[in-house]
Design a protein around this nucleic acid. Structure first.
Lengths: 95, 95
DNA sequence: TTGATATTTTGACATACTTCAAAATAAAGT
DNA sequence: ACTTTATTTTGAAGTATGTCAAAATATCAA
């Protein structure tokens, strides 16, 4: 999974809010949608982006679809951020 | 500084590469531009976005402009990421 | 199989983003 | 003052993204 997908997924405030809503447990699409002033179609698009980045998982439970955080990818996200913000790679020491 | 600016700034691969190039010290705009197959005008736009997110600082040194990582904002970025990915907020425990 | 509920997919539209080429600004040297 | 070098800003073009309304899919219950 390209890291670009992860950064892109995190760049939208609606998607970050979805992630936060999932922090205290998985929720069906409709329940998540209630928290937003937006059509369910639009929300479904955001779910797709989050799934493409492997940040969430989905599972059908009867008529509804349960979304949950994919916690196993968080270590990778942490590594990406760490790599981006660590300093002093002991090279030429320009400035 | 709105966190949206930070996430947006990080969502572009060119900008992330600029940050990585600055990890071993500050560099003038022209030196950074050499690393990319892109006009200097385009690069300058990316510098602006990174500056708006307070991720880099710039300082004029004669004819050139030195860019450097703003390391003091990294703690904030780390906090943003931590907040986004921490789980188990001991609420209803839905799933 | 018909109907109701839950969700996704499609097609269209508007806004935002990335890029370029060219013009503008700034400092330094002649 | 002019020229050169370094960089930014502007204006325009193409592409990507977020959104909606409407159509499509899937499950469940009569």
């Amino acid at each position: 999974m390209p890291s670009q997908d992860i950064f892109k997924a995190l760049s939208d405030p609606t998607r970050r809010r979805i992630l936060k809503l999932l922090q205290d447990g998985s929720k069906p699409a409709g329940t998540l949608a209630e928290a937003f002033d937006m059509t369910k179609g639009s929300l479904s698009h955001h779910f797709n982006v989050l799934k493409a980045a492997d940040l969430v998982r989905s599972e059908r439970r009867g008529q509804q679809i349960l979304y949950s955080l994919n916690t196993s990818v968080f270590a990778e996200v942490a590594a990406l951020m760490f790599d981006l913000f660590k300093v002093d790679k002991k090279k030429g020491r320009k400035a």
